[in-house]
Design a protein around this nucleic acid. Structure first.
Ligand SMILES: [Mn+2]
Ligand SMILES: [Mn+2]
Ligand SMILES: [Zn+2]
Ligand SMILES: [Zn+2]
Lengths: 152, 152
DNA sequence: TGGCAAATGAAAACCGTTTTCACTACTAAA
DNA sequence: TTTAGTAGTGAAAACGGTTTTCATTTGCCA
């Protein structure tokens, strides 16, 4: 994930607001019924294929920005150039185990970083504000599919 | 960091080899005497300003690729679109505390993920192959520079 | 020395994302 | 209702880091 942003600006609403705009609602709807991570483009084409007048890609990007700000959506970074998004319980976040073969991902049930914030503050005098953490490897099925054939 | 790649292909040397090419050496030299993280472009312009016939940007990218492969250099991803690199002891890696204000970074002395690999394997049946972990926030100086002025 | 594979670099292509800017939809007075 | 003023929208262009392409050069070795 990337627990960045979400600076608690109550006011200072420089346009592209913190209100759920029409487009943003549609974007949220898509994420609501998707369990896999979706890129902006994924969301855009999903909308494209079901809405009569779907929001443009620009709006999707802008919507995602505010949804993330609002804490309703989490942005996830896998280090390939493409950001992905998923709905989360307001204000929460989590990290993933991503299978390098089948690309499916599992949520980690707890955040390793959060539970270290105090010790990091103590040890390094560093105030943690955000972090990225994603783990890559092989899911159970892909591990098995690997060994039989001997094709390490 | 991004402890990806480094697939143990002994042979199968599809060009852009695992041998330290001339360009790669120059790139490594730059990283050798830099303690901050450097982007490909950083390295390129460094070379540009000191070499008589500096490698082109393409070569820098290619060199970094093989240096990472060789385990001599680590690629770090901050989630902004720009990959950064730094020299590491062969095969090692580490993560960072990155100050959002002054952009300096400190190395974490141990990898949180590595020491959890077994428990992840046990709990999720997931074989860890690589990971990304970077922590953002405020370094000591920037914390102090913040509070006095009251400018949260 | 000739032959070849590897290395190199300039330029173009890529591709996700952001900016620009003209236009439309809201909303809240008047 | 009309009328502003404001926020939202989208097409197209710009961006910026990275990758591809492809023609040329370099280094090796038979
Ligand atoms: Mn998730
Ligand atoms: Mn470092
Ligand atoms: Zn898998
Ligand atoms: Zn700082």
């Amino acid at each position: 994930m990337s627990v960045q942003g979400s600076h608690g600006h109550s006011h200072s609403k420089s346009p592209q607001s913190l209100r759920l705009t029409k487009g943003a609602k549609k974007v949220l709807e898509v994420l609501e019924r998707t369990d896999e991570l979706s890129s902006a483009q994924d969301i855009h084409s999903a909308l494209r294929s079901e809405e009569d007048s779907p929001p443009g890609l620009t709006t999707v990007y802008r919507s995602l920005e505010s949804l993330v700000q609002l804490g309703l959506v989490q942005a996830v970074d896998f280090g390939d150039g493409e950001r992905r998004y998923e709905m989360v319980k307001p204000g929460e976040h989590h990290h993933h185990l991503v299978c390098e073969v089948c690309r499916t991902s599992v949520h980690l049930d707890q955040c390793l970083v959060q539970q270290l914030e105090e010790s990091i503050q103590a040890k390094y005098k560093f105030e943690v504000r955000g972090h990225i953490l994603e783990i890559f490897g092989l899911c159970e099925q892909c591990q098995q599919a690997m060994t039989p054939a001997g094709k390490k």
